[in-house]
Simulated scan of single mutants.
Amino acid sequence: MKTLNLYLVRHGQTYYNIFNKLQGWSNSPLTQAGIDGAKEIGERLADVNFAGAFCSDTGRAVSTAQIILDLNQASAVKEPHQAPFFREEFYGYYEGMDMNQSWYLAAGPHGLKNIGEIVAKYSFDTAKDFLKEADPFGMAENHEEYWQRVDQGYELIANDPQLQDGDNVLVISHGNTLLSLMDRYAPGRYDLSERPANGSLTKLKLTDGKIEVVSYNE
């Protein structure tokens, strides 16, 4: 049995975060506040000995990971392993669009107004399905497509031969992904009506491929 301690950090603030746009697989650079926030969490984690580091291949995630690793004093890891499995949910037609408007269009056909109402009545997985239904191109990820991809990321970590029992692993994550993980693996434990903060820390234990939530949005 191998247990890995995962340190999930939400990427630093981006311009799309300020503009309230769905970011998904598209990207915008870190703001100065985002850079400063990444440095702040990097300093918090400076003495954690990371045996590995993983992130999506989007610029905001790579930049956040590199800032944290550059500030680390205990780890020999110098750069993150980039993989598309760790990307945020793909929003298809709604990539880069106003977040409130997009979720209104997804929720409206079901008699609801926003993602909060969808989640309160159903779940984050249902929200993914509703957005795909509303996508005129049908390209947004539904919950099955999303988890099939994301689960491969955690399989990648679990099967990494260089990681040993008890090792600490840095993972740069995304807002809706963190909410989705909490909804799936810690239902009812946390208030998910507010998005996790940029630069916040969430801890998981990964034991033989099974995920346990230790803490959220610290």
Rank of each mutant, 00 (worst) to 15 (best):
D57S: 10
D57H: 10
D57T: 11
T58M: 06
T58R: 03
G59A: 06
G59Q: 05
R60Y: 11
R60S: 10
A61S: 12
A61L: 01
V62D: 13
V62W: 09
V62K: 14
V62S: 12
S63F: 06
S63G: 08
S63A: 15
S63T: 15
S63E: 15
T64M: 10
A65W: 08
I67F: 02
I68T: 06
I68Q: 07
I68V: 13
I68W: 03
L69R: 12
L69Q: 12
L69M: 10
D70R: 07
L71I: 04
L71A: 04
L71M: 10
N72E: 10
N72Y: 08
N72K: 09
Q73G: 03
Q73E: 14
Q73Y: 06
Q73P: 01
A74Y: 09
A74D: 09
A74F: 06
S75Q: 01
S75D: 01
S75L: 00
A76K: 11
V77P: 00
V77N: 02
V77M: 02
K78T: 14
K78C: 08
E79S: 15
E79L: 14
E79V: 13
P80H: 09
P80F: 10
P80Q: 10
P80W: 08
P80I: 08
P80K: 11
P80A: 15
H81V: 15
H81I: 15
H81G: 02
Q82W: 03
Q82H: 06
Q82E: 15
Q82T: 13
Q82I: 09
A83Q: 13
A83T: 15
F85Q: 11
F85P: 02
F85M: 07
F86D: 06
F86N: 06
F86P: 02
R87V: 06
R87Y: 05
E88G: 02
E88Y: 05
E88F: 04
F90N: 10
F90R: 07
F90G: 03
F90Y: 15
Y91N: 03
Y91V: 03
G92E: 03
Y93S: 04
Y93I: 00
Y94S: 04
Y94I: 05
E95K: 06
E95L: 03
G96T: 07
G96W: 03
M97A: 04
M97Q: 13
D98V: 05
D98S: 11
M99D: 07
M99R: 08
N100G: 08
N100E: 15
N100A: 12
N100P: 00
Q101T: 15
Q101F: 07
Q101C: 02
Q101D: 14
S102T: 01
S102N: 01
W103C: 07
W103Q: 09
W103Y: 14
Y104N: 14
Y104L: 12
Y104R: 15
L105H: 08
L105Y: 08
A106R: 03
A106N: 04
A107Q: 06
G108A: 13
G108M: 13
P109I: 10
P109V: 11
P109C: 12
P109E: 14
H110W: 11
H110N: 13
H110I: 04
G111P: 02
G111C: 05
L112C: 05
L112S: 05
L112Q: 05
K113A: 11
K113V: 07
K113F: 03
K113L: 07
K113M: 09
K113R: 13
K113N: 12
N114P: 02
N114D: 14
N114V: 01
